[in-house]
Amino acid sequence: MTPISPTAARLLSVGEVVRRSGLPVSTLHYYEAEGLIGALRSAGNQRRYPRGVLRRLAVIRVALQTGIPIRRIKEALAPLPRDRAPSAEDWKHMSALWRDDLQARIDQLTRLRDQLDGCIGCGCLSLAECPLRNPDDILAAKGPGARLLMAEGERAADDDCR
């Protein structure tokens, strides 16, 4: 029987990572391609992951569930060694990086929620007082309703109709 090296004993196969993380193989490959996780290659060119990848995957999943974009997750994970699990201190640092982004989104969604009741049913979204209107809507000043409909053969009188 060939002895297993201590380093090899700490490595996980793709199947083990899939079973323990609940993620599909395609997601592992995607995260690897994005630089979020790293794998070593066996003599047979099979991927082998350090055990710490499981916590790293958990961090990625939590961040994605809170709406953190992959780009921001990658930036936060970049300085961490890939061969060890992120620590509680690492998590504290990463979550601090994301806190302001999350608060800004919470504030935006709260404003939207609070303004939404006043707009339900108007159907226009061009009224000057509508907080959800298109801010670049140059025809809003002309009142509600369609503004670009013209009688057959009629020409537009001003540039904002072209």
Rank of each mutant, 00 (worst) to 15 (best):
A85E: 12
A140G: 12
L80R: 01
D90H: 11
W98D: 05
G145I: 09
L80A: 06
S87E: 10
N45A: 14
R55I: 12
I37T: 01
L149D: 15
S87Y: 10
Q108I: 04
G22D: 05
E16V: 01
E154H: 09
L148G: 05
R55P: 06
D136K: 15
R84H: 13
Q65R: 13
M1N: 07
L12A: 04
R99F: 02
T27S: 15
Y49P: 03
T27D: 15
L57D: 01
V14L: 03
L116E: 00
D90F: 04
R71W: 06
A140I: 02
A78Q: 14
G67T: 07
C124M: 08
Q46R: 10
S26A: 15
S5N: 08
S126I: 00
A43S: 14
I68N: 04
R10H: 12
R105D: 09
I73R: 00
T2G: 04
G15N: 07
V25D: 11
I138Q: 15
I68M: 15
P3A: 10
A76Q: 03
S5Y: 01
L64C: 07
P81C: 04
P69Y: 04
A151M: 09
M150G: 08
V17M: 02
D101C: 06
A151K: 12
V18P: 02
V53S: 03
Q46S: 06
